[in-house]
């Protein structure tokens, strides 16, 4: 394809010599990155020393640096909660389900929208599909609970009309996770599609024209032009999703679940919140956060390496 880079370093940019030399040679490029790096360094890296409180018994009166070291005490405390293994299992399971079923949907939505020729309608639909993103889970969850109510909800009314017994979607362990997945897709698919749409627009029209001339039908065009055009975006977003595998949707679960389905739906974040660890237990919360970060980071590095092996650009 004409647009992608060859992947070979350009002669004028090739690194020859040490960092100083590189900087002197490409000072303009480094200078352009400087504002971003400065922001990150000041507001993200300078406070980074804060991760040590996961290994300390943090006391605001003594400050971060002078609080007592306790090693892995808080990690031990976290891992020793009876529910912890189950909570991690739930988190991973829900996340993977969301990935498997939720990830392709925005891409498909973007492809379908991209194919659409009625411009007005296309724009209206686009606006409508991204609406739910702006409404918080508290509201969406409330609506979902109303819709799914066994006695008065629309969904169950329909099920009854078809001659079946109403389903207790939110108290049946077998159903609950699927409700989480479905409502998540419904809320976020439109928003997720925006970035893919932008990528699709960037694809050169001439490619389609050439394909039409060659007699390629619509499906072939989608498969051979649109999808490859999205490839880089898809991979980057997929990699980041993999890195966030331990974030299964705190707000959503908190709003939608209830004690009868804790067994299948309590995730790390809701558990930590529910046991009241969130209040002033900074060290324990930090330990939980660090645990999530490290796992996420390892997964991202692995996935990114794999992607680069396969010839993709990857995240970094």
């Amino acid at each position: 394809m004409a647009k992608t880079n060859t992947g070979l370093p350009r002669p004028d940019l090739a690194a020859t010599g040490g960092p100083l030399r590189a900087i002197r040679k490409h000072w303009d490029l480094y200078l352009m990155a400087l504002p971003a790096i400065a922001l990150i360094v000041i507001f993200k890296y300078l406070p980074m020393y804060g991760v040590i409180i996961a290994f300390k018994d943090y006391n605001p009166m003594q400050g971060m640096l002078d609080s007592e070291w306790v090693g892995f005490r808080f990690f031990r405390e976290l891992f020793l909660f009876d529910e912890f293994p189950q909570v991690v299992r739930n988190t991973v399971a829900i996340s993977l389900m969301k990935l498997a079923f939720g990830f392709p949907v925005p891409i498909i939505l973007a492809l379908l929208l991209n194919e659409m020729k009625y411009i007005r309608l296309k724009r209206t639909i686009q606006t409508m599909t991204y609406l739910p993103h702006f409404i918080s889970w508290v509201i969406i969850g409330g609506i979902a609970i109303d819709l799914l109510s066994p006695s008065s909800g629309m969904v169950n009314k329909a099920i009854e009309l078809l001659g079946f017994k109403p389903i207790f979607f939110l108290t049946e362990e077998g159903w609950f996770r699927w409700i989480l997945i479905a409502s998540d897709i419904w809320k976020e698919a439109g928003w997720g599609a925006i970035i893919f749409l932008a990528a699709l627009i960037g694809i050169n029209d001439e490619l389609y024209q050439a394909a039409t001339v060659d007699g390629a039908n619509r499906w072939r065009q989608i498969w051979h032009i649109s999808v490859p055009g999205l490839r880089a975006t898809i991979i980057v977003i997929l990699l980041l999703r993999i890195g966030n595998i331990l974030d299964a949707g705190f707000e959503q679960v908190l709003v939608m679940y209830n004690p009868t389905v804790y067994d299948v739906s309590d995730i790390i974040d809701t558990y930590v919140f529910r046991v009241g660890l969130g209040t002033m237990q900074f060290s324990l919360t930090a330990a939980a956060g660090l645990f999530k970060s490290i796992i996420g980071c390892i997964l991202l590095v692995l996935a990114n390496t794999l992607a680069r092996r396969m010839g993709e650009e990857g995240v970094y």
Binding site: A22, P47, Y49
Partner: peptide
Amino acid sequence: NGLPYRRLMMLIFVITMFFSGG
């Protein structure tokens, strides 16, 4: 492509997506 330390710089940004000082 080929700018020295490009990946390193990128990594510096990516890391902040996972780790925060709190």
